[in-house]
Design a protein around this nucleic acid. Structure first.
Lengths: 230, 230
DNA sequence: GGAATCGTTTGCGGTGCAGCAACGTTCCGG
DNA sequence: CCGGAACGTTGCTGCACCGCAAACGATTCC
């Protein structure tokens, strides 16, 4: 097991306000782990034996319906917790988490969850704040699905991704993870065909540039208007 | 202020596992309040000065979009907490809560939230479990909106309401609160027109009976098949 | 370097559902 | 008891979007 450096983690949201000594104590129980691209960190319905912190990379959280359709619930960025089934009062994972690129994660046994939240209340507070935030985000998504059209939702999804995983380039903001039309469709509740048509149309208007598993937002402002308004 | 009887509250989910003496201490700070039908318990964007427990009645939690569209987030039943903005790390209410019928609620000042969750950890645990449950429910709704057709969603919504506010009658399960076509539409992300068409079609097939602001589920099983399957 | 695979594009047809409009029905208040 | 408001129904029209199918480029793997 690699030696864990406290200084890399002290600033992260889940550990905000936590005493350095307590952070060290938590890290003693953590296991660092590499997860290659397209490999699962954890899988839907499996026993939640561990919870995780993403250190590096990007993770796709996916729910599969009984009839096999997939929905991308969210993308996890470095510094975020995931697989915190215990915080939801569950013993199994409600979704699968797939490494979108090669990732590094920290893993703790789920048994430690209640101990951590009790012994380190700052951590507990931060964790529950995360759940609260995700509830609000998810509710916003319900609203969007119920009231907005596909092109609004796709534009909004691209903006969120650009914000979350964007990398400045000469062309604009490159979404720095492999992102297929199918992925975008599963984020927005549509089909890859419709996404493809939208992207080619937007490319003609100079709003975005896109290629195989790759999207660059060229004009965030105009895209933002597309997302909200009209 | 009416005298509050502990025995009426001890069994409720939010107070599960809480010592009777602690429950009494919490009730000392509570204010009981009548809310007439169609009146707000709290309103979206307003300062979250209080959190509530519904004692009697049914409350509609509604979000209004910037452009004025409304979405019914959920219905609250007796024994449930609501307006717990503090648990989400917010200072304003993310939605409005409207009494669907004459209601009785218990109200506590929001300032007591952190005190309660710290001093009575069982209450804190229960409250955060509520948030976790709602996150899962909301995510299930995202899946449904993204993958199922309108008639599936409407059927499912009716079944949930029947389960939550159903009253056995000779005809079947009456949803025991005023429920307009518009309300159902706002729960499922469609229009009152489509809901009306669906209900008349289902009435012809003997699945439901419905009238002005009133729906009775006659054949839950067949409706359930409509909700999931085909 | 050629074949197989995967992601993408694009045309075409079909349809689920929204939007509008008109009308009917129930309820309520003066 | 009457008039109006609120809720519900229903026909028609349109179109946003899906689903299928076929073809095309880019990648990967022998």
């Amino acid at each position: 097991m690699a030696r864990l450096d406290r200084s890399l983690l002290a600033g992260l949201p889940p550990f905000e306000g936590l005493a350095p000594a307590d952070l060290d104590r938590m890290l003693e129980h953590a296991r660092s782990q590499r997860v290659p691209k397209d490999q699962p960190v954890f899988e839907q319905e499996a026993q939640a034996h561990a919870f995780f912190l993403l250190l590096d990379g990007h993770v796709r959280v996916v729910k599969t319906t009984p009839d096999g359709q997939q929905i991308i619930v969210r993308y996890i960025s470095p510094g975020e917790l995931m697989g915190i089934a215990r915080a939801l009062g569950r013993t199994t994972y409600p979704a699968s988490a797939i490494a979108a690129v090669d990732c590094v994660v920290l893993a703790w046994p789920s048994d430690l969850w209640s101990e951590f939240t009790m012994r380190y209340p700052e951590f507990g507070t931060n964790a529950y704040k995360t759940v609260g935030t995700r509830l609000q985000e998810t509710q916003a998504r319900v609203i969007e699905l119920a009231t907005r059209q596909v092109h609004n939702r796709v534009a909004h999804a691209l903006l969120r991704l650009a914000d979350q995983a964007g990398k400045k380039t000469s062309d604009g903001i490159l979404i720095d993870l492999p992102l297929s039309r199918q992925d975008i469709a599963e984020m927005t509740g549509t089909t890859l065909h419709t996404v493809s048509r939208l992207l080619t149309a937007w490319e003609e208007q100079g709003l975005v540039k896109s290629g195989r598993q790759k999207v660059t937002v060229v004009e965030p402002d105009r895209l933002s208007r597309l997302a909200q308004g009209d």
